[in-house]
């Protein structure tokens, strides 16, 4: 299993945790590309917070700010300009692993803080901001000040992400005052819509990401793991078991990282920013 897959597995576990707490099962982890370690995570909390904007990505940004931002403030007072140059603790060092494509709001937020890359599981058909409805991350999108574009790569644990959403919508239906017909309660575990890779990444980029042997998947809109594989290519134990410890486990990892002193934001970043000015 690749490191990318391991990070996305953490996000999927968190999403399952969200489902078990009555939230939309969407979650993410932020990873420092330099350290290859999780530096923040977020879980959808729209229900708990009575707030339509408490999406996983924004929760993670907030957590990241609280833990690493210190009194320096992630804003750095620049408001819109990307900071740092890929050093640990800078925005451009962040890579996001999120189970569902960021919505337009989150895609815009991720661009405004200046992350370098987003991996997402499945597309967000209604609100997707990384290619499905709009492409806030693309170089063609110019309405976000001087922020650099970022790459968005779909597909990792896509079917697991879709299944969690299906679990959620069946529960929601059952709660609705006018329950829909019973037929809807049988969750479809077999059929998955094609993944239109071309909407999100170029063919070459796909090859670099997943290897040239997989290019037929790009050409035929196929999942990375899928049809013809046992269990429809789905890791059922990942999504069908509760992950009650995942929040604690990730928090412990962040605590350990903080104690190690290998990852800073506050003062270190300021120095980095100043040295940027000199050069």
């Amino acid at each position: 299993m690749t490191e990318d897959e391991l990070f996305m597995r953490d996000a999927v576990r968190l999403a399952r945790h969200a489902l078990d707490h009555g939230e939309t099962p969407v979650a993410c982890v932020f990873v420092s590309r330099a350290l290859r370690e999780v530096v923040a995570f977020g879980v959808n909390a729209t229900s708990r917070d009575h707030c339509g904007t408490a999406h996983a990505e924004l929760q993670a940004i907030r957590q990241w700010q609280e833990r690493w931002g210190g009194s320096g403030g992630a804003s750095g007072g620049t408001g819109g300009e990307a900071t740092g140059t890929g050093v640990p603790g800078s925005f451009s060092d962040l890579c996001v692993y999120v189970t569902v494509e960021p919505c337009v709001m989150c895609a815009s937020a991720l661009r405004q803080i200046g992350v370098s890359k987003v991996y997402f599981g499945c597309a967000n058909d209604r609100f997707g901001g990384n290619g499905t409805v709009l492409s806030l991350n693309s170089p063609q999108s110019r309405s976000l000040g001087a922020t650099p574009p970022y790459a968005a790569v779909p597909g990792l644990f896509r079917r697991e992400a879709i299944m969690l959403l299906r679990y959620f919508y069946v529960r929601e239906n059952d709660k609705a005052p006018q329950a829909r017909s019973k037929g809807n309660r049988d969750i479809n575990t077999r059929d998955f819509p094609p993944l239109h890779w071309g909407r999100y990444i170029g063919r070459e980029e796909f090859g670099r990401e997943f290897g040239s042997r997989e290019l037929h998947r790009y050409d035929d809109d196929l999942d990375l793991a899928g049809d013809g594989v046992a269990d429809h290519g789905i890791d059922w134990t990942l999504i069908d078991s509760r992950h009650d410890r995942i929040v604690d486990a990730l928090t412990e990892r962040l605590d350990t990282l903080e104690r190690s002193g290998r990852y800073h934001f506050g003062k270190k970043r300021k120095i980095a920013a100043e040295s940027n000015i000199i050069t």
Partner: peptide
């Protein structure tokens, strides 16, 4: 620009939070 907030704390985002 306030140190206890972050660069995404635009007035509308904060207003929505306040309502919540």
């Amino acid at each position: 620009c306030n140190p206890s907030y972050n660069m995404l704390d635009h007035s509308i985002m904060r207003g929505i939070r306040k309502v919540a």
